[in-house]
């Protein structure tokens, strides 16, 4: 006799369906998808591989042939914007991953073990978050020297506190649930309970946090580059905006416009997507 088991939809699956069903969030998802695709294609050298080539005189205004005009060295601003997408997406992903790794680990340890360990971690992150993050960014950039790696690390290590707090609270709640007690009863170790049982149940928080950290990281990169501490040797929206602070006085606005537009679109798309995901994933909002 065979019985048919009806697979129930996973949380992620149903969330995704919900996101797709809404027009606005679908558009946001598609935009984010395009940015990621562009980033992949540029890093593979298929798109904008010759961004460093001169296509005309310096500071040519936008025209039908050169869509966003040229920069100081006569390079196409459009190609630079496209190439900079790679930098932005890489920073977004790496920074979010670093921040999730640190935030989740610390939050889970604090929430699960409680007591002295919890106090220590809470003390650490409250102290840490009391330092203005822009000062911390600058300090880290000065110590590590400049470059893409520095931007990854400095943004990563300064953006985990929010997630850590949420994860800690969530784990505290979950560790008293029956499924954890059940796991305990069959002799599961701490690490098994944490990783195998609790983590999947709080994973929606990580996804929501990813979208938030991503666009914060993109914006922070721009600030760092504007302060002269950012990415060197490859185009980034931040360095393009840094260039334009000089160029504006000679009436060259297109580099600023192009970089800002590119940034605006992805940050907006990520915000909309983040909201939609939160609505879809947060069990408290389910059915509302």
């Amino acid at each position: 006799m065979s019985t048919e088991v009806k697979q129930s939809k996973s949380l992620l699956h149903s969330a995704l369906l919900k996101v797709i069903s809404e027009k606005l969030s679908l558009i946001a998802l598609i935009i984010v998808g395009i940015y990621f695709l562009v980033a992949i294609l540029t890093s593979a050298g298929i798109l904008a591989s010759d961004w460093n080539k001169e296509v005309g005189a310096s500071y040519m205004p936008p025209s039908s042939s050169i869509i966003f005009g040229t920069d100081i060295f006569g390079r196409s601003v459009f190609q630079k914007v496209v190439k900079a997408t790679e930098t932005a997406v890489a920073i977004g992903i790496v920074v979010s991953c670093i921040s999730i790794l640190i935030g989740t680990t610390m939050g889970m340890i604090a929430g699960y073990f409680g007591g002295f360990i919890d106090e220590l971690i809470v003390w650490f992150y409250t102290t840490f978050s009391s330092i203005p993050s822009i000062m911390l960014l600058v300090a880290i950039a000065f110590i590590l020297g400049k470059g893409t790696m520095t931007v990854f690390l400095s943004l990563g290590v300064t953006s985990w506190v929010g997630l850590c707090r949420i994860v800690r609270a969530e784990v505290m709640k979950h560790k008293e649930r029956e499924y954890v007690h059940a796991a305990n009863a069959i002799g599961a170790t701490h690490s098994r309970k944490l990783i195998k049982h609790i983590l999947p149940n709080i994973s929606h928080l990580l996804i929501i946090n990813f979208t938030q950290t991503f666009d914060a990281a993109v914006k922070s990169e721009v600030i760092l580059s504007f302060l002269g501490l950012g990415v060197v040797g490859r185009p980034s929206w931040g360095t393009m905006i840094d260039d334009s602070k000089l160029e504006l006085s000679r009436g060259v606005w297109w580099q600023l416009a192009a970089a800002t537009l590119a940034m605006f679109v992805i940050v907006l798309a990520f915000n909309i997507l983040g909201d939609a995901l939160r609505d879809a994933l947060d069990p408290k909002l389910k059915g509302k």
Binding site: N52, I72, F73, G228, V232, G233, T239, D242, D243, K245, L246
Partner: peptide
């Protein structure tokens, strides 16, 4: 040294050597 014109000059030199 650290400033936007210096960075641009640096980038220009880098491009030339490339």
């Amino acid at each position: 040294p650290d400033s936007t014109p210096s960075r641009q000059a640096g980038e220009f030199f880098q491009k030339q050597m490339e």
